[in-house]
Design a protein around this nucleic acid. Structure first.
Lengths: 226, 226
DNA sequence: ACCTGAACACCGTTCAAGT
DNA sequence: ACCTGAACACCGTTCAAGT
């Protein structure tokens, strides 16, 4: 009896799954700009053209990678007693996913028609329905929630693009926010009174808490409409 | 007496203002991708390197162009009886500006630290203050509003990137939304019941109305917090 | 001080040629 | 069917050289 595994496959064979996996590694470790077809091909020890046999183009590659990350969020967020709770955990799931993979933020906000967004739409939408929002208002309520999430995703990604991926992120964030706050505090007081005041709170604020506060604000608005 | 104008200047002299103006024309007429330093130099009949004497880099160029557009919005939105009204007109001003200059949407959402965003932050922030939102909640309220606006800006820009700039936009939008709706309606009913239902409303919806509904939802949430 | 334009160091994508 | 890698048509940015 030979020990030949029936579904034998060459470990080195290229496939969309393997390509996407390698792409995610590059994105996570070296940042958005580091993902090029040349770098990807080198890591997979193949030619850059070979990738096009499995993937339509760079957009396809990024959309598939993003969906891979977001799929985990929507499937994990099923827990929660009330619809509000589910929405919160799902939103925080997106937030944490973007924290772990900042490039996901850029990709989500740049391409709202990709499947990852449909996943989120469905997840949020079901809960909004369960919340008792009247049918004619559901579309606007869900897209409002989605725009907020995608907007914050974009801002978060913008922050991640600013610093070299090998740096300590928390430390960089702190000094960066302090720099912005200092710039804001030097603005003309009559023209920018509010932003000057914001500059005092800016360096201390917690992104995650701020995000959740936004979600709660929109949920409160939906409550008052119902 | 010689008729020599004291502040005589060569009409052809390069300046940041002239460069930005030309850049905006290219962006509006031919889309985001058409703005290259080569195209810009050709239009100004100069060398591509000359632009760098007046502008730091492409990001500086885009940020300045964006600020140029947004400045008009914030200065024009001072009217309105209630703070809510001012916020609404300002938000719609942003919406209309992005409609007229889709590239502004991408630029705003991609770079939240540029001066144009500070302008909006100040404009919105002053009104949120006037609304009587307690000071500790102002930061979260304003950034929620801003994330929503920037999120929708990004989505709008994504839509604009999809079609060639020389096409009829309204017609393209219609057929595009119909295509998406058709795709959504073919999704698995047990996995995507909500999105399938959305697909019925999608092609008919009014972007501007949807945007305003989101603003009102957040305003209602702020109301309930006060 | 301001401008020129060739040169540099990249991109994504294509495609003839291989196995 | 799948892969190779040179070639194509671009980019943003730099910089020696001009005026």
């Amino acid at each position: 009896m030979k020990n030949k595994i029936p579904t034998e496959r060459r470990t080195n064979a290229l496939s969309k799954a393997r390509i996407v996996e390698a792409a995610i590694e590059i994105l996570d470790r070296e940042g958005e700009d580091a993902l090029t077809f040349r770098a990807l091909a080198a890591r997979l020890s193949t030619g850059s053209g070979a990738i096009y046999w499995h993937v339509a183009d760079k957009n396809d590659l990024l959309a598939t990678a993003t969906d891979h990350v977001i799929a985990r969020v929507t499937t994990n967020a099923v827990r929660g007693s009330t619809p509000q709770e589910v929405i919160r955990t799902m939103a925080l799931g997106v937030f944490d996913a973007i924290h772990a993979h900042p490039w996901v933020g850029g990709q989500l906000s740049r391409n709202p028609w990709q499947y990852a967004v449909v996943r989120l739409l469905e997840g949020v939408g079901g809960q909004v329905q369960a919340l008792g929002v009247p049918e004619h208002a559901q579309f606007n309520a869900v897209t409002a929630l989605m725009s907020f999430i995608l907007g914050l995703a974009g801002q978060y990604a913008a922050g991640a693009r600013l610093f070299p991926p090998d740096m300590d992120r928390a430390a960089f964030r702190k000094t960066f926010l302090e720099t912005v706050a200092a710039r804001w505090s030097r603005l003309d007081p009559t023209e920018h009174p509010f932003v000057r005041q914001l500059s005092k709170v800016l360096p201390e604020h917690d992104d995650r808490e701020q995000f959740l506060a936004g979600i709660d604000l929109i949920l409160a608005g939906m409550e008052s409409i119902r």
